[in-house]
Design a protein around this nucleic acid. Structure first.
Lengths: 146, 146
DNA sequence: CCGGATCCGTTTCGATACTG
DNA sequence: CAGTATCGAAACGGATCCGG
């Protein structure tokens, strides 16, 4: 349903950024490079299995992420951002910057440095191309089972 | 409810950008400077009165928008972005840039120029301080009552 | 008239159990 | 492990009502 709304420059972002879970998936892939379904499940703060599956397929349809078999473990699917997805990095960077300025967000020191140094986008890109690189952020807070 | 999630740099943006309607309200205020409740109702693509009221109060609680009486028409309330809200402009700018690059978004030529010239943020700021300036974008597509 | 608040039918979301 | 089915909870949209 492309609808009748192409006059505003941010409308095409709405389906991604109008949704909390899509945003979290993108953030996680951007910070870590590759992730399997299971890793995303435990990383995102308590996303349900059906929601994750739904968002992954929508993001894949939108050409923002892509999946492929894990060459080392045939059972797993590895998800990563496409070029189009990686290009969302500047948006995330500005979000991180805003949060740090206006709310008491406490990103990891490493992330702060990246944002300051303007290398966030570049690092996110490298991470999607080279899976040997470590994540930008620790494995995740892993929210307590509510 | 600050919750237990401060380790990621974008978490504090989630409540705004995880919600479609908040995003639209912010976009509209950013492009036009001031808006009354009624104007927002007809500008946003078909938002319901209760939803708009809800989002306006949440955004006000978050310190992102502020309201005051229209000096010329005591019945009206005028909403505008606070400094904190205006500082979201870089995020919107990157969204506009991404949309223009990756989807066939057709922003108004004026908006394209602003984004290219990097003046989007600056113009949004001016518009929130000086209500004599024209909106950056036409009064809005005004979606057909389906 | 303007800015909401309230009620209500419908749709969507999300937690859990379950399956290939 | 990756993903569906189910079903209750929440959000949404529309209409209507109300105080100023």
């Amino acid at each position: 349903m492309p609808g009748k709304r192409s006059s505003c420059p941010i409308n095409t972002c709405l389906e991604i950024f109008g949704d909390r879970w899509s945003l979290l998936v993108i953030r996680d892939l951007m910070l870590s490079g590759f992730r399997s379904y299971k890793e995303l499940l435990s990383s995102e703060e308590g996303i349900a299995t059906n929601i994750l599956a739904d968002r992954l397929s929508k993001l894949e349809d939108a050409g923002i992420i892509a999946s492929r078999r894990d060459p080392e473990d045939g059972r797993k699917l590895l998800y990563r951002l496409t070029t189009k997805g990686i290009d969302l990095a500047p948006i995330l960077r500005e979000m991180a910057r805003w949060s740090t300025t206006h709310e008491g967000a406490h990103p990891s020191p490493a992330t702060v440095e990246l944002v300051k140094a303007n290398r966030f986008v570049q690092e996110a890109r490298r991470r999607s191309e080279d899976e040997s690189l470590p994540p930008l952020l620790a494995p995740s807070p892993r929210r307590k089972a509510r």
